[in-house]
Design a protein around this nucleic acid. Structure first.
Length: 537
DNA sequence: CTGGGGACGGGGCCC
DNA sequence: TGGGCCCCGTCCCCA
């Protein structure tokens, strides 16, 4: 018996040794990959800086040339303005890019330009706390106003026609789906999402930032043990039964899917993240983004800040220059200069620090990037992303991104940024800069980015951001189909489905292929058709 | 059998 | 809160 006990003890110690060895091996592999990853980031940022310098030189040279030719300036606006205005024109459907604003903004109205939102291009910023926000395209094509966008389409998406008041009311909504890959490039040129400025600001400290993120990934248990970070009470949004609200920076396996313009831009960013090895116990499919805490902590200041952004950056009404006033948020004294490197997130509750920590980690931990911000993170424009010198003073730079919906309103007859009829949307989403009229709307909207889903279905595990979505979903369980087709008595649970169904009877096919003329009742059918038959995507 | 297209159900999100 | 639009997945039919 004693021998048996000894034997078991030995087995146990051997197992422990083996386990330790395995853990050590795994850690080594992770560290190796992590080092490579960090090196790549560093190299990319160096490239960014180089490109930025080149562009600045270009701009300066261009402006000098323009100053020497005032008559030319009078005859035509400055080139930088042209570029910006060209984007604006495109956003209105006037430009070359097919699909109007869709060509360079994220779908569903995110990150779109808004005429009443100020954008400042600071041409010459000398101080270290002054950061330039460039809304100019970074690619050579965009940098050269003389080079036209290669895409030119006369037709427009009926969805976008809503934003285009110039469209004739009787025009049949003919849709084209040729707008595919181009948007990404253009989009990233202006979509400098608020979460990324640290890329430019902390280019010299990315190592530390990465380290912090890395370390945070190792302190998962600590995060979970923090009761204040597990609930959603601060959002007034009770956690769903059985839900497990994870702390920040633990979305390693999350497959972020960005819908819309970039087909196939699923970003399986977890694959390259060394943190994957440390988050295996999570359920990626059922894992809510854990940003709610940071979002909540920062919201107040953020919105106040956003207000200041709005008030500070006003549209230059004297000219056509679209400018974004540079914005500098100084970290208060309670935040050490090395806050992002040495201050674990869980320990800091000052709004500024949480806010910045969160953003910094967003930058380096792409797994928690939001759909809107992911483009900015991944497709970080080498110019706009790193425009301006690296700020070592703890300032944070933000951008102003137009909002298509607001823009549409502004362009609507009787509307416009100068008319004063547009309701001021001074509360900006900290993720996509979309403007809202009140903080509550911002909060609800930001759940889109944070993944906070407050409304749980009692019959299944589905959770929803909005109560209406839950209510709609519950018809799946109840079988309620209140909408019936007057033509065939077919019933539907949703009105929009009935509307779609009615196309069967009406023969409506609003989506036409520009290559063969074949028409489709659904946009997706057209897209698939073009993908398969015309290889336009 | 296979691919293209139609139809439908469902979720996301905005107004 | 409801309406509406977008998108996707899936099933089915048909050539």
């Amino acid at each position: 018996m004693a021998n048996c006990m000894v034997f078991h003890t030995q087995i146990a110690s051997i197992m422990e040794v083996l386990a330790n060895a395995a853990v050590a091996e795994i850690c080594k592999l992770v560290d190796d990959d992590y080092a490579v990853f960090r090196l790549e980031i560093t190299q990319s940022q160096k490239e960014n800086r180089t490109l930025r310098r080149k562009l600045l030189e270009l701009k300066v040279a261009r402006e000098r040339a323009e100053r020497t030719m005032p008559e030319r300036v009078l005859a035509s606006r400055p080139s930088s303005v042209k570029i910006l205005d060209r984007y604006r024109g495109m956003a209105r459907g006037e430009g070359h890019l097919t699909g109007g604003h869709r060509s360079f903004v994220k779908p569903a109205g995110h990150n779109t330009w808004r005429d009443d939102q100020p954008i400042t291009v600071d041409e010459g910023s000398g101080t270290s706390t002054q950061n330039i926000i460039m809304i100019e395209p970074a690619d050579a094509e965009a940098a050269d106003p003389g080079v036209k966008q290669e895409r030119s389409e006369g037709e427009e998406d009926p969805r976008h026609s809503r934003d285009n008041p110039t469209r004739a009311a009787g025009d049949p909504p003919v849709a084209t789906e040729d707008t595919a890959p181009a948007p990404l490039r253009s989009q990233r040129s202006i979509t400098e999402v608020s979460g990324m400025p640290n890329t430019a600001l902390k280019s010299e400290t990315d190592t530390e930032t990465l380290t912090v993120t890395h370390r945070l990934l190792h302190t998962e248990s600590d995060h979970r043990s923090d009761p204040e970070r597990q609930g959603l009470g601060r959002l007034g949004c009770p956690p769903a039964p059985g839900s497990e609200y994870l702390p920040v920076f633990h979305q390693s396996h999350r497959m972020v899917h960005t819908r819309g313009d970039g087909y196939g831009d699923e970003l399986n960013i977890g694959g390259d993240d060394p943190s994957c090895s440390y988050a295996t116990e999570m359920d990626p499919g059922n894992m809510p983004l854990g940003l709610e805490i940071q979002t909540d902590l920062s919201r107040g200041d953020w919105n106040r800040y956003s207000s200041s952004v709005h008030s500070e950056g006003c549209l230059d009404k004297k000219g056509e220059v679209i400018v974004v006033d540079e914005v500098t948020v100084k970290v208060e004294g309670d935040v050490p200069p090395t806050w992002n490197a040495e201050s674990p997130l869980v320990e800091g509750h000052s709004q500024g620090r949480d806010f910045l920590d969160y953003r910094g980690s967003l930058e380096t931990n792409l797994n928690i990037a939001t759909p809107s911000s992911l483009h900015a993170f991944r497709d970080l424009d080498p110019v706009s992303a790193s425009m301006g010198p690296s700020d070592s003073h703890g300032s944070v730079r933000f951008d102003q991104v137009f909002n298509s919906n607001d823009r549409a309103k502004a362009l609507a007859p009787g509307g416009g940024a100068t008319s004063g009829n547009v309701k001021e949307k001074r509360f900006l989403c900290m993720f996509c800069n979309k403007g809202f009229s009140c903080p509550q709307k911002v909060e609800i909207h930001q759940r889109v980015h944070t993944g906070v889903k407050c409304f749980s279905c009692t019959q299944c595990q589905m959770r929803f951001v909005q109560a209406g979505d839950l209510k709609r979903h519950q018809r799946v369980h109840t079988g309620e189909k209140p909408y019936s087709c007057p033509q065939c008595e077919k019933r539907f649970s949703r009105q929009d489905h009935l509307k779609m169904h009615m196309k069967v009877h009406t023969g409506e096919r609003p989506f036409a292929c520009t290559h063969c003329g074949k028409r489709f009742s659904e946009r997706r059918c057209l897209r698939i058709h073009q993908q398969k038959n015309h290889s336009t995507l």
